[in-house]
Nucleic acid binder design. Structure first.
Length: 269
DNA sequence: CATTGTCCCTGGAAGC
DNA sequence: TGCTTCCAGGGACAAT
C-alpha cells in the first residue's frame, strides 16, 4: 500500500526514465480509472505531450506536461506503476507508450487507484497539510494542528489535512517509536510527546525512503523490485509477535475501521 | 469546523 | 472439496 515513502521511491526511480520523454499513445484497459473523462478525452490530453518534471505531494504523484497541465496518479491500496515489465501483467488498467518505445504500465488489482488530468496541483494542494519532511513542517506547526482535537491521535495522523502522506503502517510505527498509545486524544499530548511524535514521524519516513518503501502487500517499484522497509517494522502488521523492546505481544485494535498495531506496555494509555 | 460512518473494490484467507 | 463470508484500507462524501 503506497504511502509517502513508497510514492517517493516510485517518483525517484521513474524520474530519469520519464523526464524528457513524450507520450506516443495511451491504452485505457479499464475505463473506470479515467472517469469522468472519456477514453478519447484522456488520450487527447496526453498523446504528443512531453513530460517535463515529476512531483510528489503526500501520496499523490504528478507528471507535469508540456501543455502546462499535469497527470495526477494516486495508487491507493493496490496500484503500481511498472516500467517495461518483462512479463505480461494481470490487472492492467492503463498503458502509457513513450516515444522511445518504452512503456509505463499502471496495474491495480483492487481498482481503487485514481488518475486524472488537472490544470495544476492546486485542487490536491488545497486538501493537504504540510509535507512532513519539508522545513515548513515544524513542531510548532504540528502542535497547532493537533490542538483541540479530541479524536484518537492515530486517526488524526491519518488525516491528510494534518500531515500529508502518512498511512496506516507508518502511523503505527511512528506512535510506537514515540511511545504513545494510538487511542490518546490528539489534543491531550504533552509538548514532550508532540516533540517525540514529530521526530518519530520524520525518522520513520526517512528510514523507509532509504529502504525504498515497504512491500507488505502488492507494492513494487517501477522495475518490479520490492522495498525492504517492512523488515524494520516493529509493530505494523506484527499482531501477536513479541515487542522488540519488552517482549509483550503486539496487540491489534480497530480505530476508525483501520487495524492498529501497538505494544500495550511501551505505549501506555 | 470536527467527527464519524459508508462506500468503493477484489483476491486470498477463514469458516462451514 | 467447494461454497460463502469476511477482511485489507485511502480518501471522497454525507450526516450529525
Amino acid at each position: 500500500m503506497p504511502e509517502l515513502p513508497e510514492v517517493e521511491t516510485i517518483k525517484r526511480e521513474l524520474e530519469p526514465l520519464l523526464v524528457g520523454r513524450k507520450f506516443a499513445a495511451v491504452s485505457v484497459c479499464d475505463t473506470k480509472i479515467v472517469s469522468p473523462l472519456t477514453v478519447e478525452g484522456f488520450q487527447a490530453e496526453l498523446v504528443g505531450q512531453g513530460i517535463e518534471y515529476l512531483r510528489r505531494r503526500g501520496k499523490y504523484l504528478f507528471l507535469h506536461l508540456s501543455s502546462g497541465k499535469c497527470l495526477m496518479v494516486h495508487l491507493r491500496m493496490s496500484g503500481a506503476l511498472l516500467f517495461d515489465p518483462p512479463q505480461p501483467q494481470s490487472h492492467v488498467r492503463l498503458i502509457f507508450f513513450l516515444d522511445n518505445g518504452s512503456k509505463l504500465v499502471l496495474v491495480d488489482r483492487r481498482r481503487l487507484g485514481v488518475v486524472s488530468i488537472l490544470d495544476s496541483e492546486k485542487p490536491v494542494e488545497n486538501r493537504l497539510g504540510p509535507e512532513p519532511l519539508e522545513p515548513d513542517f515544524t513542531t510548532t506547526e504540528f502542535s497547532r494542528r493537533l490542538q483541540g482535537r479530541k479524536a484518537p491521535v492515530k486517526a488524526v495522523l491519518l488525516d491528510q489535512k494534518v500531515v500529508a502522506g502518512i498511512g496506516n503502517m507508518y502511523a503505527d510505527e511512528a506512535l510506537f517509536k514515540a511511545r504513545i498509545h494510538p487511542l490518546r486524544p490528539a489534543g491531550d499530548l504533552s509538548p514532550q510527546e508532540i516533540q517525540r511524535l514529530f521526530s518519530a514521524i520524520r525518522s520513520t519516513l526517512r528510514s523507509a525512503i532509504e529502504n525504498k518503501g515497504a512491500s507488505v502487500d502488492t507494492y513494487q517499484r517501477p522495475g518490479g523490485e520490492p522495498g525492504t522497509a517492512h523488515f524494520n517494522f516493529k509493530v505494523a502488521h506484527c499482531g501477536g509477535e513479541p515487542c522488540p523492546k519488552c517482549g509483550t505481544p503486539i496487540q491489534r485494535l480497530l480505530i476508525r475501521n483501520r487495524g492498529s498495531y501497538f505494544c500495550p506496555t511501551c505505549q501506555k494509555d
